[in-house]
Write a protein that binds this DNA or RNA. Sequence first.
DNA 1: CCCGTATATTACCCATGGGTAAGAAAAAGT
DNA 2: ACTTTTTCTTACCCATGGGTAATATACGGG
Lengths: 231, 231
Amino acid sequence: MDAQSPETNPSPWMPFESRRRARDEKREAVLRTAVRLFLEQGYHRVTLNDVAERLNITKPALYNYFRSKDEILFECWALGQEIVDEFIAAIDKGGGNALAKLRKLIQAYAEQMTTDSGASLVRFDARDLTAENQKIVRAAKKRIDRTFRKYLADGVADGSIKPCDPKLTAFAIAGSLNWIGHWYQRDGAWSAEAVASRFAAQLTEGLAKAPASKRGPATPKKSRPAKGGRK
Amino acid sequence: MDAQSPETNPSPWMPFESRRRARDEKREAVLRTAVRLFLEQGYHRVTLNDVAERLNITKPALYNYFRSKDEILFECWALGQEIVDEFIAAIDKGGGNALAKLRKLIQAYAEQMTTDSGASLVRFDARDLTAENQKIVRAAKKRIDRTFRKYLADGVADGSIKPCDPKLTAFAIAGSLNWIGHWYQRDGAWSAEAVASRFAAQLTEGLAKAPASKRGPATPKKSRPAKGGRK
DNA sequence: CCCGTATATTACCCATGGGTAAGAAAAAGT
DNA sequence: ACTTTTTCTTACCCATGGGTAATATACGGG
């Protein structure tokens, strides 16, 4: 993930300097700044002046890139959702039985929750969007939910997961994962990958039918040299 | 806008009728209405006029009972927190080993999440409150978190729970439970108690050291472990 | 160097909604 | 009754902040 130095502005608008970056880069810079501010202070407490100020521009300049505040919010959300859709597609195409796919999904989703764009998926309020965009958000949430339920149901069917109610279990897992977006902070004791792998292990070990010996033994931290993040 | 919800018109201010209820009842009625509206539409989209209108009064009348909008929000939150504090105290005083207490806590907390006052604990944004009230909220959240972690740590210590990281596991459990406040709706297929007991079972069965038979905990020893881990 | 286009700024509009002032209308006290 | 206190209403204030208009500045091509 892009190194965004603390507190500094990665703004393409340097006060008195080359202001000639490509339009898309500026658009993205707006979104990165907006996401950060929305998460820090909450959408309703952040004004467009705040966003603009942090970018060394003025509010009306934002309207060259976006039509409204809620469109900015939506695009922020979309950035995060895009990533989720991508890894869902990748996992779905990949191999493994249902339980293995579920583990991958949990791992990827948990990691996503530790990022700004991931946290925005659960910490933004869809009701701040237009009716049309709310529909899009609802559809996306439904896609995620369906994926979790499908893996659970498939796992029960193929015997890799012990009988459970897919709907309720999906809610339980999603809740655990979404919550990461509320408490995780980069400067904490746990790396994103560490949190994700612990969650993947812990959330599935109660579900696996046979003693989960695929990769991580029941004892968590011995065999996995998962110290610093690879990648 | 729409007509009053047919079943729910607990307003002591009937249009042209007895307006003589006790002050505290009216205060509570304001809070019940406010909680409902805040949950339905979100704090920032609800105006005090909206709240007043649903109570058949006008906005300034609210200021006889509250000093500000954010005080109303805080009192709404406090109603829900009070209940949590009560059952935490009850469970803590009650019997059972750490695992049993954890189950009780999960059950009670899950049920609370299916109520308006419970959902408000996780769906309200503390940043809408004054700095002092934010401190109170943070302290309360910390109390809950400490309770979960304590039961987990005690359980690991007394052998009723298999080794795990109490902090991370507490987050996982709390996340599942808090999420209930986001998806549960009373008119769904599941009763609050049913959801709660399923969660209590499912979230702990992966933790229990011995295969948990339906009711009888594996080892109902007299274990009353040291309680003062830290304070 | 000039002109068209993209981009940014200054200055403004105005709906919204929290909050208040002043006084009417009930309750309660005497 | 009539006075006092509490409760509620009408009418208003005004800071906030999303959004716009008019205009200025930079940029790229001829």
